[in-house]
Amino acid sequence: MFEILQYKFIQNAIIASFFGGAGCGIIGVWIIMTRIPFVGVAMSHAAFAGAIFGLLFQVNPLLMAIIFSLISAALIGPVAERTDLDPNVSLGIIFSVLLGIAFLGMGLLKGPKTEALNFIWGNILLLSRGDLKLLIIIVLSIFLFLILLFKEIQAILFNREIARAVGIPEKAIFYAMIFLSGMTVALSLNTIGGLLIFSLIINPPSAAYQLTYNLKTMFFLSAFFGVCSCMLGLLFSYIFNIPSGAVIIIVSSVIFGLSFIFSPKRRVKQYESS
């Protein structure tokens, strides 16, 4: 079995699993803690729509996915700020518009749609070296951003109004978080696929949230669960010859299920209610 590791595309897939899983795990904590999960959905579908339009206009799909993600990030920041509309409602509307645009692009595509479908399901084995380098750069930027601004990020995740009130430049940091999330989502499109990546953003941090009362541990666990989901998904995909993106999501869902069942926070609740 180990002879397969000598193939370049498998090495690329393993590296992408590590960095994609860790990156999605970290941005997932931001999204879960700010309680706007639709940010992940909206951005993943923006990337998906961008890639489809890239194919339609014969421009690099990854470049278009990044551009669409960044445009959606620029829209999402102000939308999340508004107090006159629930952010999840407005983000849900943005998501449905983007999904409509993506499927419009799919409909307009001529000939076989195999490449377009890859952006829905993802195909980690088709990842190019250039895509991988970009993914590594953006995920390392996220690590650095998190380490250097941890105390400010912690304040924003606790309560944005308080972060602003104590004099933290919360708007700039929050927008940077959204921007980095958009980049990670766009660059993970090939690995997981536009429809499924949302689960990899939500499941690992939700699992980590069940297990710890410490934010640093939550970041670590979420990144670890993200990596485990991708690695195990890749392994099962190879063993059973099934689509990697779907298996990655199923593994991440199982990790969440187990974390929820064995959550010490849940046990406390049961104890209190008995």
Binding site: K151, Q154, I162, P169, Y213, M218
Partner: peptide, 28 residues
């Protein structure tokens, strides 16, 4: 501010919250 609604499962300790007040004085 008026009392906040904090999720009992939130992974933030009392010390972390007090640290938030010090964050801007420490600097970026």
């Amino acid at each position: 501010p008026q009392s906040l609604s904090i999720d009992p499962r939130s992974p933030i300790s009392v010390r972390d919250v007090v640290m938030i007040g010090r964050s801007s004085k420490i600097g970026l």
